[in-house]
Amino acid sequence: MTVNLTRIYTKLGDGGETHLGDMSRVPKTHPRIEAYGVVDELNAQLGLALAAGELPADQAQWLGHIQNDLFDVGADLSVPESGDGGRERLRVVPEQVAWLEERCDEVNATLAPLKSFVLPGGSRAAAHLHVCRTVCRRAERRALLVQDANPEVVRYLNRLSDLLFILSRAANAGGEEPLWQPGRFR
């Protein structure tokens, strides 16, 4: 599959509408646009987490893999099921979700059991990953508002937010994990 971008600005969106992947036009506030817009934001936040350079090499490689998958998620969201015109479209598949589950299990097996809710923060890497996790949860909520969305998209985003939480815990494993202490300052 080749993507060929020859011109970045087209002026076609100046009136507040944009094309979906099937070339239908919708308002830029359409739930489908909102959903893949938040996926794009998540991808940018992952880029920031990677640019900080504090993650182990294998986990940084995973995030690069995920960034590529997020373009698949956006492509999937950009074409309604009814708008594929009989053409094979790029859709998120169960194997992509399974890959995330394998990474979750691999990292979670190295962590101490949780004793309370985790406060976002700790190391800089953990803080970046917590921001990614919250943006991912928003993307998931937006994807749920898309009529006829591929259910694998929601599963992928749900599992990805789990992995980001687990990776944030791993980023704090060498130090003190900030935990919620209910009622501590009452």
Rank of each mutant, 00 (worst) to 15 (best):
M1Y: 12
N4Q: 14
L5C: 08
T6L: 13
R7S: 14
I8N: 09
I8Q: 04
K11L: 05
G13L: 06
E17S: 12
E17W: 10
T18K: 03
H19Q: 14
L20Y: 07
G21Y: 03
D22N: 13
D22S: 09
S24E: 10
P27R: 13
K28R: 12
K28H: 09
K28F: 08
T29W: 06
T29G: 10
P31K: 04
E34D: 13
A35K: 00
V38E: 06
E41C: 01
E41F: 01
N43I: 03
A44V: 11
A44P: 02
Q45A: 15
G47Q: 03
L48S: 11
A49L: 05
A51C: 05
A51F: 01
P56M: 08
A60F: 02
L63D: 02
L63Q: 01
L63W: 01
G64L: 15
H65R: 15
Q67C: 05
N68E: 11
D69R: 10
L70I: 07
F71N: 04
D72R: 05
V73C: 02
D76M: 04
S78D: 04
E81S: 13
G83V: 04
D84S: 14
D84C: 15
G85Q: 15
G85W: 10
R87G: 00
E88D: 14
R89A: 12
R89S: 12
R91P: 00
Q96L: 08
A98T: 14
L100V: 11
E101Q: 12
C104N: 11
C104F: 03
C104A: 10
D105C: 08
V107N: 07
V107D: 07
A109E: 15
T110H: 13
T110P: 02
A112G: 00
A112N: 10
P113G: 09
L114F: 11
L114I: 13
K115Q: 15
K115C: 13
S116P: 07
F117M: 11
L119S: 10
L119A: 11
L119F: 06
P120I: 05
G121V: 05
G122L: 05
A127C: 08
H128M: 11
H128P: 00
L129Y: 01
L129W: 02
H130K: 06
C132Y: 00
R133D: 04
T134A: 14
V135F: 01
C136V: 06
C136Q: 04
R138M: 03
A139K: 01
A143H: 03
A143R: 01
Q147C: 00
D148V: 07
P151V: 09
E152H: 13
R155Q: 15
N158L: 08
R159M: 03
S161Q: 07
S161T: 09
L163E: 04
L163A: 10
L163N: 02
L163Y: 03
L164R: 03
L167P: 02
R169K: 14
A171S: 12
N172V: 09
A173Y: 00
G174C: 09
G174K: 12
G175E: 14
E177S: 07
P182S: 13
P182I: 08
G183W: 07
R186S: 15
